Amino acid sequence: MNVITKITSLLLALALFQPSLWAQEKNFPFTYGEELNFEVSYGWFNLADAKMVIAKNPEKIEDKEHFKIDVYGKTKGAATIFGRVNDNWGTIWSKETKLPSRSYRHIEEGRYRKHEKVYFDHQEKKAVMELYDRENKNLEKVQEFDLPGSVQDIVSGFYYLRTLDLSKMNKGQSVNIKGFFDKEIYNIKLIYEGQEKIKTDLGEVDTYIFSPQIPKNKLFRGEYPVTVWVTQDQNKIPVKIKANLFLGSLNLDLKSAKGLRY
């Protein structure tokens, strides 16, 4: 994958992986059929569109209701010259446990392809990953991984954050969380930065601000290069994500929202 393709993909992923450990609210701030649409930009250039969608009907696993949640990212315009991205991350997330039962990724980035499914067994602390061929037709490999306990996947983590009572946090408060992604366990430190009123395509909104600690790499600048703004209303939706790169910054801005619970 080239640099532009890789940065765009990473930003879309980091925007989602934001779980936490504060006291939970009883009711979900989202419901079936919710759809959030974003635009990814670099300076004046619009690079990609992203979409977060909850299926209109529940998914049943062992008679238990689950949310089926999909996230799509697709490059557009001049960005496709550097490498076309057409990704789909998904989770089948239990309403009862607020943990993923399954996750999946269908990745198309330039010539690179990856199709995988992960089955979680939180009681046995195991995850089984199935890898498929380029056309997503034939099973090629099965791997089993030990888990350190209950984990979120790259999509479910963000929706878990939205179930928490964010109003009780203090500026500077941090937690360490665990997630399973791409065959590895990640320990992410999440910092609450306070509150801010910002202008968006949906109007002025009051937001909570978060900064995840990102491992040192060649793409991002600083120890906390990514900032996420989440609305203070009952829906708690992300309206803006900013990533500071070594040259300039990449932004992901909410353009429309429908099917909101409140």
Score class of each variant (00 low, 15 high):
Gly43Ala: 01
His66Cys: 01
Leu12Ile: 09
Asp165Leu: 12
Lys51Glu: 06
Lys125Gly: 06
Gly157Glu: 11
Trp229Gln: 12
Asn57Ala: 12
Phe246Val: 05
Pro238Asp: 01
Ser9Val: 06
Lys137Tyr: 00
Leu250Asn: 01
Leu164Ile: 08
Ile185Met: 12
Lys6Gly: 06
Lys240Asp: 01
Lys199Glu: 15
Lys141Met: 13
Phe120Met: 01
Val53Met: 04
Ala79His: 06
Glu25Asn: 14
Asn217Ile: 09
Val175Ser: 11
Leu190His: 11
Thr91Leu: 03
Gln143Asp: 14
Arg105Leu: 02
Asp206Asn: 15
Glu140Asp: 05
Trp44Ile: 07
Lys240Tyr: 02
Lys125Leu: 09
Val40Lys: 03
Leu245Arg: 08
Ser41Met: 09
Glu62Val: 01
Glu96Asn: 13
Tyr32Ile: 00
Phe120Asn: 02
Ala79Ser: 14
Ser150Pro: 10
Pro58Ile: 00
Phe180Ser: 02
Arg102Ala: 07
Tyr72Pro: 12
Gln173Gly: 10
Lys216Val: 07
Ile177Gly: 07
Thr8Lys: 09
Glu196Asn: 13
Gly179Leu: 04
Thr80Glu: 11
Ile188His: 05
Lys98Phe: 14
Gly203Asn: 14
Pro225Asn: 12
Ile54Lys: 01
Leu12Trp: 05
Lys95Thr: 07
Ile69Gln: 01
Tyr262Ile: 04
Lys74Glu: 08
Ser256Lys: 15
Trp229Cys: 08
Glu35Thr: 13
Gly222Ile: 01
Asn170Met: 10
Ala79Trp: 09
Pro58Asp: 02
Tyr192Lys: 10
Phe181Gln: 11
Asp63Val: 00
Leu47Ile: 07
Glu96Gly: 14
Val228Ile: 15
Phe28Ser: 11
Lys236Phe: 01
Arg105Glu: 04
Gly194Ala: 05
Glu124Asn: 14
Pro148Met: 10
Val226Asp: 07
Arg261Ile: 09
Glu204Asp: 15
